[in-house]
Design a protein around this nucleic acid. Structure first.
Lengths: 333, 333
DNA sequence: CTGTTAGCGCCTTCAA
DNA sequence: TTGAAGGCGCTAACAG
């Protein structure tokens, strides 16, 4: 059995209260020699406080939870995770992560959160599975919640938006201004199964609408590199191939560059390519990748929102951050 | 305040015991109408059992923990996560993930694990940070532990090995057999800072040793695509450029293919390229990527190991799985 | 079929 | 400077 505070207390010849005070660092004046005896006893037994018991008593877990779509993510997700871990460390919190890559996982994650696994939640771009309704269940459990994403969120949580529609439209207008008229869109799955276009897809349509361009080609495939390559190859082989591809992710755009070159065509002369994400990898492609994405890859402001809310005496009003995005023109367009 | 079982009991006009039995599904015969009243009351209050209290009482969390290096991982990691979540679901367990991308994170993770966040642990390839000594602390907390990785592990845990050294040597010998004599190695950081070569690097040296080839070039850069591109470019520009590159990851190998082509050279005519990982993306490069890696991307056997151990009455003997690896020759070599 | 009760391990107030 | 004791919310053994 794992050692308990009681066993440490017996070994040290003190009460469990003293053990608790010494090990949790709460300040109460404890004799130096007593303190040492407790520390020795704890070390000898390999004692670690039972967090379930501690959480029950303190009504706090001293943990925050990151809700992440998957582990095959983009570098941006990794940066977010690091910023969160770093600030959590500084505040004496641990971080646990829940993976939500399907509706079923979202439901399971909400149960775990409502069960009290953590004191606050940071939800990263899993809006397609973690619906507003499910999020509302999290918020109603009085969990401070920050959501990164452009979907609807329930009242009471902070939200971090990205102007992806607007900047995507800007990128597509740039393609149009070059004289491109057959612009195809390589979509992420979750943008497709909707009544009306949203996000990057909406930006695509908006730009073409503005210029009265009728021709639209939207195909799925931006979710992974292999699908993107295949989708792009399919487009290029079609009877009326595109002269530009706007891909909903940089990874898909890079696969598109490959596909164009493998088809014996040139980027950007024959086909222009633009991605979304502004990842570093766009700097090593040939030509370098034009992209739409965040100016800075830094999430300290987002994470600060979470800890502000976590440590506030009473719930602050819901706040919204809009992250600065921009279109970065490089060689591929 | 979050509702408690006591409040549900009062609303339903029953005892907390009945609430507990109804909601935890433990079988005890409960009247149909009573049961319904409890369910209604729970739903009305939005009750979710406090997991800290439940864990404390049951001495089980009904959770398993995945310890993962990072979230910018390879597709393989994602597959492992999915297989784990799936089987956990089937057994009524939740999954929480801890990120260990540094020594500091490893220490923090061990604390959290020893604090009892989960009932079992699956450690995925974080051997460089999560040392044998730290793992021993986890095992000594009586946590069933399965470790994926080729590093040393403490007694009492199951381990999953990959014959990466042997198959890497095979790949390099294949390059030698083609007449390549200036074979460079693109290394991951953690393989470099050692007294003696291990893993893929060891395979590289072994093959060259066998054939009495003196020339060795080892550079860092296989950890991410951008570094790999830069490292490969550096190699190609050196006075004595390689005629083959063995990269410690497929992602690095793919960057190397780009670098070779951007340098105006041909793959494999001028420079052969081989990676490690056997990821699907190797099928869409041009030429297709030769690689060293697992035959199947399936972790159900590994995950089963974990649940076997978790549900065993008494600790089974430590088991070892060796995953089948192979060299897959494709167009790049 | 249902209620009562004794803790799980820890923290923290109160008393000494 | 330290100890005694109650209780966080839940479960499971025991009573009825």
């Amino acid at each position: 059995m794992r050692p308990t505070a009681k066993q440490v207390a017996e070994l040290a010849g003190v009460s469990t209260a003293t053990v608790s005070y010494v090990l949790s660092g709460r300040d109460r004046r404890v004799g130096a020699e007593t303190k040492q005896r407790v520390l020795d006893a704890a070390a000898r037994l390999g004692y670690t406080p039972n967090q379930a018991a501690r959480s029950l008593r303190r009504r706090r877990t001293q943990r925050v939870c990151l809700v992440q779509g998957s582990f095959g993510g983009v570098p941006t997700d990794e940066r977010l995770a690091r910023d969160l871990h770093e600030m959590a460390d500084g505040h004496g919190y641990s971080v646990v992560t829940l993976a939500v890559y399907s509706e079923a996982r979202a439901v399971a994650a909400v149960d775990v959160l409502r069960g009290g696994i953590a004191d606050a939640v940071l939800v990263n771009n899993v809006g397609d599975h973690l619906t507003e309704e499910l999020l509302a269940q999290v918020v109603s459990a009085r969990l401070p919640t920050v959501v990164i994403g452009n979907g609807p969120v329930p009242p009471g949580c902070d939200v971090v938006r990205a102007p992806e529609t607007e900047v995507s439209a800007e990128a597509v207008e740039h393609l149009i201004a070059q004289g491109r008229r057959r612009v195809a869109f390589l979509a992420q799955r979750y943008e497709l199964y909707r009544d009306r276009p949203i996000g990057r897809l909406l930006g695509y349509h908006t730009a073409l609408d503005r210029h009265g361009i009728e021709q639209r080609t939207v195909v799925s495939g931006a979710d992974d590199r292999v699908s993107a390559y295949q989708a792009a190859t399919g487009l290029l082989r079609s009877p009326d191939p595109p002269d530009a591809v706007f891909a909903a992710s940089d990874r898909a755009a890079i696969s598109t560059i490959w596909a164009v070159r493998d088809a014996g065509l040139r980027v950007p002369a024959d086909v222009a390519v633009v991605g979304v994400g502004n990842i570093d990898e766009g700097l090593i492609t040939n030509p370098q990748l034009s992209t739409v994405g965040p100016i800075r890859h830094d999430y300290t402001d987002v994470v600060r929102l979470l800890f502000d809310r976590l440590q506030a005496e009473e719930p602050p009003p819901a706040r919204e951050i809009v992250r600065p995005w921009t279109f970065v023109r490089r060689g591929s367009s």
